[in-house]
Amino acid sequence: MDNTSIKRKRGLRFYLRIYFKIISQDIKSKMSYRADFITTFFGMIALNLSGFIAFWVIFKNFPQINGWDYREMLFLYAFSLIALVPAEFFFDNNWNLQQAIVTGDFIKYCFKPLNIFFYYMSEVFGIRGLGQLVFGVGTLIYAWVGLALPVSFLIIVKLLIALFSASLFMIALRNLSAATCFWIINGLHVMNITNKFRDYARYPITIFGGVFRVIFTFVIPIAFMAYYPSLELLDTKQPVFLTYLTPIYGIIFFWLSYKVWMKGAMNYSGTGS
């Protein structure tokens, strides 16, 4: 037996192969806990339905917000739901980080010949994202048809790029807020707070004035989670410079969140017992 080293280089393919193996096993085992699966299903419906009811109640009273009518707002809403899906699917284990750190179980992720961030995230597939995906796609189609937006190959590509870029912000925000667990005892609170903010990504950033618009654009970048990328897709709206910056800033923000998370992981394993 070769005892000395890994023979092949650990490229993207290696990680993808491992990833799909672990994830498919996780989904399989999730399915086998029926009660859990069923209640999760109802939870997804309740979560999304209550969001819609709240949205509907507001628009029953107010026909438009800041020049955005019901259908355009619905588009933003649907967009933000879909953009959240990757964070829910693939980065859900962030929610367990505080627990893993408090109990000391986190150290186990440091001993495998794998990237720690990758190994940690690969362990859980967040099935709850399915609810957002179904509701989001359904609503997007409804809004798309209602707004009589054109459909072409180019537009679909644009939509996918926009969704992908927006999802990077969703993921990055979750990574960053979870990473606080490495330094403070109550990182879960930070996660809950940022999770709540994220719900407001479905409103146009123009409602915020002055300094807060800057904050919600660059510091807690909820403006990129639906508003800026959507401007390009909606016929009635004009894209701005920041719309085209979304993919680049998204990548930078994601990379930053990864670095902070890793720094936290190293910091933790250095001091924890």
Partner: peptide
């Protein structure tokens, strides 16, 4: 990671 490939914990 290379060291980890050759140890068990």
């Amino acid at each position: 990671t290379k060291t980890a490939a050759n140890i068990g914990v």
